[in-house]
Design a binder for these strands. Structure first.
Lengths: 254, 254
DNA sequence: TTGCCACGTTCGACAATGCTAAACGCCATC
DNA sequence: GATGGCGTTTAGCATTGTCGAACGTGGCAA
């Protein structure tokens, strides 16, 4: 593999460090965390600040992420073809199912939410676009791991942290679930990520029949489940939506 | 001014170029647009791709923005203190006014929307968080230009493009409006940005009495105006919200 | 108040680093 | 099957970013 640009890698590591730490970080913290000389870290931070990728608190001198990232991140959504095609169908799915709809793509070691339609009631909900979900416990993640080889490799390598008592962590168990997912064309998360919350998701394919994302709904078990299983009509609605989006992307339905 | 890191500046320019162009760009396009050798551009792009900031279309080889930007941009929102404090109050404002609420901060030459509450009806609306608005024609922008010296300087230097027949472009006229804005503590956009759309906004101050953002509502003139002027109760509601957020940030109310 | 420490910042010299130009392999097109 | 354009790789040079140390400043404690 050809070598990458050192200063850029360091800058990216800084941005990720700032994104991870809850609070603003000082120059010394950043320099020591990355094993750099203070002057080196400062040079990178100064440039990042000048470009708007980080901001510096005038009082404390500490650094945090900058507004330009928000602007560019939003632009990413605008360009995202899968998201654009899915917009129409996800609204209908939210209306017909009465639940929140999520659209996710593989990113690094998890599922990045690129679209989120609120559950159609008047409750207060927070937008989760841009958030990450784990591959092994969520319906969106299982679908990706079952249909995308890259996602599958990520899942195997990942830690598979148990979130609830029902989280499936053992690799053999996970592989069996993925086999089932491939066979039936959808995946379920029955209180494996959050207690009391279940979800269903189905894969979206592009014109080359490659999985490019997954779409699903999430809701309280009391609403989306019956007798401990996800309601069949919700599964059908999710799969219909996934098929519609896939067709919009150019995938042949047969 | 100390010199910034060249490769980082070039990388940032590439990201902005990719954000500006509607479609994916090829390596040659990028290299020539920035005046770089192809190999130089390729090295930067390869690193950006490895870090997730750009993605390459496998078929065409063209480049586009990457998902990591969305993740980091969303994290910026999570850390944003002004936005966090404003969350509670903007919901109430949307409910009491019946209109969409926007929260903006100065970024580069315009207003960056960091929060957006949909108009509380069941109509389909697109989230505008991360989008930019001009300083000279919008209520959010006028408020910032009137209260933040940096924003004012940006407004003076900007082109002040006319969007509708009512857009105020002449600098003297703008300055008069800003004077009025300072005097009355709020600004209005009466079909100056979009035909048929009007808005009101008021400034938000931090504990040092510095303007850090503006909050306002936007809606169809038929609803938010009466006799060609913005309804007084809406102005009062917006100003109340701005004061509440300011107080939350530590600003003394007197 | 005074001393001290820790912080962000600047400086200057070195060599490692990233840049340039040219050549390569690939694919689509004619 | 030649051709042009594309993204990619290579090799060598000097520009560029890095480093260690010194500077200035602010806050804290004695």
């Amino acid at each position: 593999m050809a070598k990458n640009i050192q200063s850029l890698e360091r800058a990216a590591a800084m941005l990720r460090l700032l994104a991870g730490g809850e609070r603003r970080l000082g120059l010394s913290d950043i320099a020591s965390a990355l094993g750099l000389a203070k002057a080196t870290a400062h040079g990178i931070l100064r440039t990042l600040q000048h470009e708007g990728f980080v901001e510096q608190d005038p009082g404390s001198g500490r650094y945090q992420l900058g507004a330009e990232l928000l602007r560019l991140g939003t632009t990413y959504l605008d360009v995202h073809e899968l998201r654009a095609r899915a917009l129409v169908w996800t609204d209908d799915l939210a209306r017909s199912s009465g639940e929140a709809v999520y659209l996710g793509v593989l990113h690094q070691h998890g599922v990045l939410i690129v679209h989120h339609v609120f559950r159609p009631d008047d409750s207060r909900q927070v937008l989760e676009v841009g958030a990450m979900q784990p591959l092994h416990s969520t319906a969106l993640g299982k679908v990706l791991a079952a249909t995308d080889p890259v996602a599958h490799a990520e899942l195997v390598d990942a830690k598979r942290e148990p979130f609830t008592s029902r989280t499936i962590s053992d690799l053999d168990d996970v592989e069996r679930i993925l086999e089932l997912t491939r066979a039936q064309g959808y995946a379920v998360d029955n209180e494996e990520t959050l207690d009391g919350v279940a979800s269903v998701a189905a894969p979206i394919y592009d014109r080359r029949r490659m999985a490019v994302g997954s779409v699903g709904i999430t809701g309280a078990v009391e609403r989306v489940c019956r007798d401990g299983e996800l309601r069949a009509e919700l599964i059908a609605a999710v799969r219909d939506t996934a098929r519609s989006v896939s067709r919009d992307l150019g995938a042949k339905p047969f």
